[in-house]
Structure formats: C-alpha cells, structure tokens
Computed example of a mutant assay.
Amino acid sequence: MDSKFVLKFFLPISIMLLLSGSADAQGLKVGFYKKTCPNAETIVYNEMKRVISVAPSLAGPLLRLFFHDCFVRGCDASILLNSTKNNVAEKESPINLSLRGYGVIDTIKAKLEKACPGIVSCADITALVARDAVYLSKGPSWEVPTGRRDGRASLIAETRQLPAPIFTFQQLKASFAQKGLSVKDLVVLSGGHTLGTSQCSFFSPRLYNFTGKGDADPSLDSEYVIKLKNKCKPTDTTKLAEMDPGSFLSFDTDYYKIVSKRRGLFSTDSALLQDAETRSYVQRQVKASNPREFFKDFGVSMVNMGNTGVLIGKQGEIRKNCAVVN
C-alpha cells in the first residue's frame, strides 16, 4: 500500500479513539484481520487502485453499494446476494437497478479467498471498497472498523427502508434516525452525491409532473430545469445525468455548492435547505476555503453508518461467494 494512503487525510488520533470505542461497542474493531489475514486491506486497496485507474466512474456506484447495503438489514452484504428460485433479492428492486460494481466485489473476494480462505467477509469488503473508492477519487481516507459477518437473507420487500429520492426532510430525518444516524450524518453522507450519476427516471417527475399537473418542482432552479429537460426526456429510463456536473469523478465539496444554488437532482438534495442545521452545514461548506471539515466529518459518518445492524461473532457466516449463501 502506498505511503500516501497511510498518511493522507487519516482522522486525528483523538477522533479515531472515539470512533474505535463506538465501533468496539458494536463488536467491530480497526485491524480485525491483523492476525488472520494481515494483507486483507492491502489486497482490497491494490485492486481498487487498478479498477479506479481504468474505470473512475465506478467510484460512485461502489460507494452507494455500501449505503444501500447498510440501510437494509444493516451492513451484512445482503445487497450482494442474487435472487433464487424462491426469493427475489434486494438488488432486483427498482431503487437498486442502477447500482454497479458487483464484479469488483467478486474479484476482490476471490483474491482474498486465495490469500486467506474463509476469513474476510463480503460485508467488510463492501465497507473497505467504499472507503478506497472515495480516497482514490481525491477524497479522504479513514480507518474502517472490521469484523462484520455476512447475512443469509436478501428480500426485495425490505428495500422500502431505503430513503427515496422524493423524500421530504422529515421523512429523510426519520429514515436516518431509524438507523441510529443523526441529522449531521444525514447532511454529511448526502455529500457522497459528489460522486457519480443518476438515471433520469429518478428525478424526472420533478421536471415534468411534480404535483400531477405537468409542472416542475419550484424548489429546483428554473434555468436548471430547462437544462435537465434537454438532457432527460419524460420517457428516458436509462439515460444518466451527473449528480455533481463537471466534478462527478472527484470527491469534493462542489455538491454543497450545487445544493445551495437549488440544483441538486433529487428532492432529498433540496430538502437540505429546509432545515436550519443542514442548511447551515451546506452554507459552511460553500464558504470553506478547503474541504478539511467535510472530509473529517465524512469519515466519522461513514463509520457511524458502518456500525448499523452488524452481525458479529457467530452470527451469520463468511460467504465463500458474495452472491450466494454458503
């Protein structure tokens, strides 16, 4: 692993001690594989470095895989499971159909199985991949507490737990609170929209039929509505739009500048301006001379989310293949 990865943007020791204590309470700890698979994180990082160098657009989807996993059943890699004859899995849900990067997870898992058979969980791989995707996109790094085990179930019906792009602020706040996440976590993790793209179908109702009368969402900048309409026709279901135009491959604070201009793609982006706490955070990042605060906060919130509903000890299993139960 290169020296920059070790040194650049790691959280201050005092913060890491706080995070480690929180993680230990969940049964996770930094360096969980130190004795059983000492090169685990290096193997993940080296493969991610190769992937992002040839396919930088995968960073956003790989980050969202972790988010979509943790919000359903907790961070147990249920998002990675394939459907079976008797069950339709989470990945088949309309809200998950645009996710990509499953092959990256599978490749990393195969390399880890070769190095340390039956040791590293798919849930931990997903968490480490999300961290490395951010770092390799010019973002921060943070220490990831590990020790998660993999779940044995994945149900499409449970994807209703995921925050929908049309959520109001109160719905969004309640969704995060159910996972033990704060309003600050909400606004910080929303900053992950600085990476990647969205299918037009996820936000086109804001452009063409917001209230059912063929109108546009008034919270969306009217000039931006025109630009988005030129890109996305009402029937477009696969066409993509950048969530952070001009900067969607770089992890930075530009997302907050876009939100402040009322140009966030989703209703949930606009909702950040409706609450005093989240609006203040957005405005602070717009005015900031550097991304230090956001970078630090993002690492903290990712660890917080990564503690959600984890399986530990003898719970669950360590899948040999991330797409199927053992």
Rank of each mutant, 00 (worst) to 15 (best):
T238E: 14
F251Y: 15
V183T: 15
D244I: 01
S250N: 07
L189W: 02
D297S: 04
A241M: 09
G192C: 14
A177I: 01
K261G: 15
F251Q: 11
K239F: 06
L273C: 05
Q170L: 11
T235R: 04
S247W: 09
H193K: 14
D297A: 06
G191Q: 13
Q170P: 01
N290V: 05
E223R: 08
V259E: 10
K184W: 03
S198C: 14
N230K: 13
A177Y: 00
S301H: 06
P205S: 08
V187K: 09
T253M: 12
M243G: 10
G191R: 10
Q285F: 03
I226K: 09
Y208M: 05
T211A: 12
T268Y: 01
R279Q: 05
K233Y: 01
G212T: 12
L272W: 03
G299E: 14
F266R: 04
F202N: 08
V259D: 08
S289F: 05
Q170V: 09
F202E: 13
L265Q: 04
G214A: 08
K227D: 12
F251S: 11
A174N: 09
P291D: 14
E242P: 01
P291T: 10
V187D: 10
I226N: 00
S175E: 15
R292W: 07
R284V: 06
Y281L: 00
Y224L: 01
D217T: 11
C200W: 06
G191F: 12
V286C: 00
M302K: 13
V188G: 09
S289R: 10
K229H: 05
S175Y: 04
I258H: 05
V300P: 03
A271E: 13
Q178W: 04
F210Q: 09
S175N: 15
G180D: 11
F295V: 09
V310Q: 01
G214M: 10
G264H: 06
C200Q: 02
N209R: 04
G196S: 10
Y224P: 02
R263L: 06
A271Q: 11
S267K: 15
S204H: 07
M305Y: 05
R292F: 06
T235E: 09
Y255F: 15
F203A: 01
D215W: 09
A241S: 14
E277Y: 05
K229N: 00
F266S: 01
Q274E: 12
F210L: 10
